[in-house]
Nucleic acid binder design. Structure first.
Lengths: 204, 204
DNA sequence: CTCTTATTGTGATTTTTTTCACATAATACA
DNA sequence: TGTATTATGTGAAAAAAATCACAATAAGAG
């Protein structure tokens, strides 16, 4: 199986959301319909779908249920991915309540914070644990993924800790650029960049 | 001035964050340093910087303050961009507290919700206003940008409203795909897609 | 049963993006 | 003052992504 690019992953995920929410009534969907809703070229949509091994039907399009399931398999939505959230501020707690995570195999086990008033409490059914216990828990449960929602000034220090104890993927919601070894992946969820990209589409 | 691609915007924003937080002590920075921190090719970094009209200095690199300011100008960080947040749930209120927005010209004027218990209250110094007042306020203040943080089932309805009264850019934090006229831009901030892209980088 | 039409699947082409490679030149140091 | 070094700036090449174009074909109408 050949590697699949991030651009394709992004589009397939959007197709999946479209099937899940926007077109849930229909049993068939045409590539041109998907393309239209997402402002893409329809042949690009067909090529993406072909990567999932799904065949369409002439004059009808793709079977929605089949396509949805194939995207789930291709992107591994049902593989369980255990995650810690570090930083139980507003964003961290908003994420723990994000209902769709569990549909995509993203299993948030706990939140971590260093605020004594928060430690021990629950949020969205998950415990808020002291940051001191992070290293031990990362290595014991063998956590590979963290969501970083701490204030910018704390981001690098927490990162160093997490990496030292075995974290491999850091979903960075802070506006900082993190220094990590080459073996660690940082995904920068930079909201400023998103906004600027949105504004850039003035040329329509 | 030629158009600038979303990829370039994304990288320039990250360079800016890097200069702002990670390298704030230094007066010079080399393209190879930026490239290393963001796992990019250094010539790509230099080409991005060239687009901002900044010249470097042989054997020293770029002047941090100058580069930072030029990125701000190129990407229009100081242009004021007025925004409404629709949906005063956890995510909406987390975003209103996001301190960096104002540094980038993103001015959130108010939150909207249809929950009577929230209406009239304040969050992060901004009023929570009834959704009923949205159309009037969009057209009166001439709001072009909205942040959509409503539950998925409400997303399309709110979108139709907003578009009807003049909104041009929708920053969609819901997992739905929105139907909009071609003249309206939707930026899908799809967190599932981000997570999957992060996980995809296993090939390192 | 035949014809029209809508839609797929994909090879070829084009466009965009990234990487490579290296001439150029300023700095620091001996 | 001269030399080695280190970083820029950018053309050329390569790689990746998107678009174009169209043959194939199944569905549905009549």
């Amino acid at each position: 199986m050949t590697a699949i690019s991030n651009k394709v992953i992004n589009r397939l995920t959007l197709y999946h959301c479209l099937l899940k929410y926007t077109c849930k009534g229909n049993s068939f969907i045409a590539s041109s319909k998907i393309a239209d809703l997402l402002d893409l070229d329809d042949s690009l949509v067909r090529k993406d779908i072909a990567l999932c091994g799904v065949l369409g039907h002439k004059k009808q399009g793709y079977v929605v249920a089949e396509l949805k399931k194939s995207i789930e398999q291709k992107l591994g939505f049902s593989d369980r991915k255990e995650v810690f959230i570090i930083g139980a501020g507003r964003l961290g707690t908003a994420l723990i309540h994000y209902a769709d995570f569990k549909d995509y195999g993203i299993d948030i086990l706990a939140l971590f914070d260093n605020n004594p008033n928060k430690i021990g409490k629950e949020e969205g059914g998950k415990r808020i644990i002291s940051l001191e216990k992070l290293p031990n828990l990362i290595s014991r449960i063998n956590i590979k993924n963290i969501i970083l929602t701490v204030p910018p000034y704390a981001a690098q220090e927490v990162t160093d800790y997490a990496v030292k104890y075995g974290v491999r993927f850091i979903w960075n919601f802070t506006p900082t650029v993190l220094k990590v070894p080459k073996s660690v992946t940082v995904y920068n969820e930079n909201v400023i960049s998103s906004f600027m990209q949105m504004q850039n589409s003035k040329n329509k």
